[in-house]
């Protein structure tokens, strides 16, 4: 491979890029095209972060966001996977509900805003609902596809040994489909996280999304940028965690060669 260098370069190179980007950012700020209110620099954002930290608000926002995200994502994924298994396995049911799913799926979760507010009022629920919607469909559809694409030879083998219908699903279809389901859960994680801000922009009185909307009202652009950066970083962390989980599944499912001594 071209461009291989010393150990740790993998981590240093992106850091360097980050430094350059911060430098450009600072240059634009220093050029005076925008006022500091319109575009605060890295220093202002860091100061703003320190201010929020000192007031014990920052961790609270992060905690609340993670809580809502966690609840909504787990609900979406568990119901999406279970329903996906059923629909993927029983063709008739899929035929019955597929058009309905295909109509609901392209509706942006954001379009549900007004109804979510009417139904769930103010608080955690509207945000959880929006995040749930954004994760539910990717999880559902990935599971349906994963089940439908299970190699028929596995089912033949299972039937040959007279496996009961329930066990075919649990002992054969689920494990055979699982690595592909994981891919869907990974995608669902990304879309759900993107909709976190949107979900918290309505009705919520806390959380990273709220921090951004609320800071707009006070023209605290440093906090807006801080909120954006935090969402990006946490999203990255979640994605990495998911990748680790995927790797673990693939290894233990025997789909990726293990190294043997």
């Amino acid at each position: 491979m071209r461009g291989q260098g010393f150990k740790g370069e993998k981590y240093l190179t992106p850091l360097l890029t980050l430094g350059v980007l911060a430098g450009i950012w600072q240059l634009v700020v220093s050029s005076g095209i925008y006022t500091l209110e319109e575009l605060p620099g890295p220093v202002q954002v860091a100061k703003g972060a320190a201010e929020l930290w000192a007031r014990d608000i920052l961790l609270e926002h992060i905690g609340v966001s993670m809580y809502r995200f966690g609840v909504a994502y787990l609900l979406a994924v568990s119901s999406g996977v279970v329903l996906g298994l059923i629909l993927g396995w029983y063709n008739r049911m899929l035929t019955a509900v597929d058009p309905f799913i295909q109509i609901l799926r392209p509706i942006s979760p954001i379009a549900w805003f007004p109804l979510a507010l009417l139904w769930f009022g103010i608080g955690n629920l509207p945000a959880i609902f929006i995040i749930f919607l954004s994760a539910f469909f990717p999880a559902l559809l990935a599971t349906v596809n994963a089940v439908r694409n299970v190699d028929p030879v596995y089912i033949k083998v299972a039937r040959n040994f007279r496996t009961r219908e329930r066990d075919i699903l649990l002992k054969v279809v689920v494990p055979a489909a699982f690595p592909h389901i994981m891919v869907g859960l990974h995608i669902a994680l990304g879309t759900a996280w993107i909709h976190l801000v949107a979900g918290e922009m309505l009705g919520a009185q806390s959380g990273l999304g709220y921090l951004i909307v609320d800071s707009r009202n006070f023209l605290r652009t440093d906090w807006i940028i801080l909120g954006m950066i935090l969402i990006g970083l946490l999203g990255l962390a979640l994605d990495r965690l998911m990748r680790l989980a995927e790797k673990w599944v693939n290894k233990n499912w025997g789909f990726v060669p293990k190294t043997h001594e």
């Binding site: 030879v153 596995y154 033949k156 083998v157 039937r159 040994f161 499912w253 789909f255």
Partner: peptide, 20 residues
Amino acid sequence: GPDPKHVTIFQNYGLFPWRT
């Protein structure tokens, strides 16, 4: 129908990759 007393071995083995 298929019966455990008459087992088929397939060309592509049909082994479950997630099992040892």
